[in-house]
C-alpha cells in the first residue's frame, strides 16, 4: 500500500465515529468604523511601535521624500513597474538598478545594493502590516529582502483597519510577503530586538490622495 493510501486509511479508521464538523461562528469584527484620519493615525502608531520610519505625505512629495530617505545610500534597486517619477529627485551619485523580467539582478548584485524602493498592495492599520504581492510595482520577493534598507510606498486608499477587510483585496495564490516593521527577533530572553536578516531599516511613506 502506498504511504498516501495508508495514511488516508488511518484517518478514515480514526474518524469511524463520524464527528460532525461544526459551523464556524464568525462573530469577530469584519468591518471598520474608522474615518480616514483615524485610520492613518492607527497605522502610524503601529509602525512607530515597530520602530519603522513613517511619513504621511501628499503624492507630489514622493520624489523629495524618497530622495531624503535614500540620502545615505550608494545604490538603489527598483522593480520594473515602479513609477519612474518617484525617483526623479535622486541625485546622480546614487547608482540605480532596475530588476526586470529577462534582466534580473543576481543575489550577489542585490547584496551589494544599499536600498530598495517598492510600492505595496494592502495594509492593515490595526496590526501595522504592509502586504506585498509581487505586482510589477513591488517586484520579485528577493529585491525587497536582500538590500538592508526598504523604502515602501503605501497609498492611503490601500489601507484598511482589520485583517478580515484586507482578505478580499488579496489574491492569495500570488507570492505574498506580510511585513510588520523591520526584521526583528525575540529569541534572547523574549525581548524584541530590531534588525536581523531582513532589511534592518524600514521607511514607510504613507501617501494621501492615492
Amino acid at each position: 500500500m502506498s504511504a498516501k493510501d495508508e495514511i488516508l486509511g488511518r484517518i478514515r479508521t480514526a474518524l469511524a465515529d463520524a464527528p460532525q464538523a461544526p459551523e464556524v461562528p464568525r462573530g469577530y469584527r469584519t468591518s471598520s468604523e474608522l474615518d480616514e484620519e483615524a485610520l492613518i493615525e492607527l497605522l502610524v502608531d503601529r509602525l512607530v511601535d515597530y520602530k519603522a520610519g513613517v511619513d504621511v505625505i501628499e503624492e507630489s512629495q514622493i520624489p523629495q521624500l524618497v530622495a531624503d530617505k535614500l540620502a545615505g545610500a550608494s545604490s538603489v534597486v527598483t522593480p520594473q513597474g515602479l513609477n519612474p517619477q518617484w525617483l526623479s529627485a535622486l541625485p546622480g551619485t546614487i547608482a540605480r538598478h532596475v530588476d526586470a523580467p529577462g534582466d534580473r539582478r543576481s543575489v550577489a548584485e542585490l547584496d551589494a545594493i544599499s536600498a530598495v524602493v517598492t510600492s505595496s498592495a494592502v495594509s492593515i492599520a490595526e496590526s501595522g502590516t504592509i502586504i506585498l504581492d509581487g505586482e510589477p510595482d513591488q517586484g520579485r520577493r528577493a529585491i525587497s529582502l536582500v538590500p538592508d534598507h526598504h523604502v515602501c510606498i503605501v497609498p492611503v486608499s490601500t489601507v484598511v483597519q482589520l485583517l478580515p477587510e484586507a482578505m478580499p483585496r488579496l489574491t492569495i495564490t500570488r507570492p505574498l510577503t506580510w511585513i510588520s516593521g523591520p526584521s526583528a527577533t525575540s529569541d534572547i530572553e523574549l525581548e524584541r530586538v530590531e534588525g536581523v536578516h531582513g532589511p534592518r531599516t524600514l521607511d514607510v511613506l504613507l501617501v494621501r490622495g492615492m
Binding site: 503601529r46 515597530y50 523580467p101 534580473r104 492593515i124 490595526e126 496590526s127 501595522g128 502590516t129 509581487g134 520579485r140 520577493r141 528577493a142 492569495i172 495564490t173 500570488r174 507570492p175 505574498l176 510577503t177 506580510w178 511585513i179 510588520s180 516593521g181 523591520p182 526584521s183 526583528a184 525575540s186 523574549l190 524584541r192 531582513g198
Partner: peptide, 20 residues
C-alpha cells in the same frame, strides 16, 4: 510572541515563475 503581528509572514502557492 505577544506582538500584534510578527515581522514577516510568507505565503507561496506551488511555483511562481521567475520568483523564488
Amino acid at each position: 510572541t505577544g506582538e500584534r503581528m510578527n515581522p514577516y509572514t510568507s505565503m507561496w502557492t506551488g511555483v511562481t515563475e521567475d520568483d523564488g
